[in-house]
């Protein structure tokens, strides 16, 4: 759901950039406080992995397709929604500047959708569910919800931009991404977390292990 240049009016793109910059500043603060010898290599591995998986569009019905965002997975593994914000910001900069995937003026709006909404919805829904349904179920739900909600926010942005009618935009964006989210975000998030827990459980933030509170 990378928004290209030319869709959102310039003055609106500035508002999204300002919102994005507030969260980017917070994410840099998080990185300074939280990145230790374990999380530094994990952030790099996630950065490369998220970029690669975003190139893998999965086909869905109606002749369309979609790919993972990865913000939920990053937030769960590194134990902060700001991990999703920081990594998706870097990914969107590289995609926009080098590959013309997502606009330059629209980058702020894309960071708000995929980084901020993706990271925060993913992190908090995972933490709300991890103790009741376990890590695998919670990570699936968090992944699915993160892309579904982000797509609705994108539809609202397109409505404010005068591009989509509100209800039709919400309905179609929600429908497409509800389907994309099952395999494209939910399943991949759950499998990745499950495999990492099997091989190196020590690299997963203790905040994301069931039984530990978010504030711990």
């Amino acid at each position: 759901m990378h928004i290209g240049d030319g869709l959102i009016p310039l003055e609106q793109t500035i508002i999204y950039w300002l919102i994005a910059l507030v969260f980017i500043a917070k994410s840099l603060e998080w990185a300074r406080k939280d990145l230790d010898e374990m999380k530094i290599p994990m952030l790099a591995a996630l950065g490369a992995g998220i970029f690669a998986i975003q190139a893998m569009n999965i086909p869905i019905p109606w002749g369309t397709s979609g790919h993972m965002m990865g913000a939920a997975l990053a937030a769960i593994i590194l134990g902060s929604p700001f991990a999703g914000v920081l990594l998706l910001t870097l990914v969107l900069v590289v995609q926009g500047v080098v590959f013309a995937d997502g606009g330059i003026t629209a980058m702020g709006a894309n960071i708000v959708n995929m980084g901020v909404v993706g990271g925060f919805v993913g992190f908090y829904s995972y933490n709300a569910l991890k103790n009741s349904i376990g890590m695998t179920g919670a990570s699936f739900a968090a992944g699915w919800l993160s892309i579904f909600i982000a797509s609705l926010v994108c539809a609202v942005q397109m409505y404010f931009a005068g591009i989509f009618p509100l209800w039709e935009g919400l309905l179609l964006m929600g429908l497409y991404h509800a389907v994309i989210g099952v395999v494209g975000e939910g399943l991949i998030t759950a499998i990745a977390l499950n495999r990492i827990m099997a091989v190196r459980p020590d690299v997963v933030s203790e905040k994301s292990i069931p039984g530990v509170g978010v504030a711990a």
Binding site: M1, M42, G49, A52, A55, N57, P59, G63, T64, Y176
Partner: peptide
């Protein structure tokens, strides 16, 4: 951790042009 992440990411990158769907994504549709 970096090496494992890089290897997985490069494998996905090499496969993507052959496996990825070229259908327009949800927003483009």
């Amino acid at each position: 951790i970096i090496i494992a992440g890089a290897v997985i990411a490069i494998i996905i990158s090499v496969m993507a042009p052959f496996l990825a769907s070229s259908n327009p994504d949800g927003l483009d549709m």
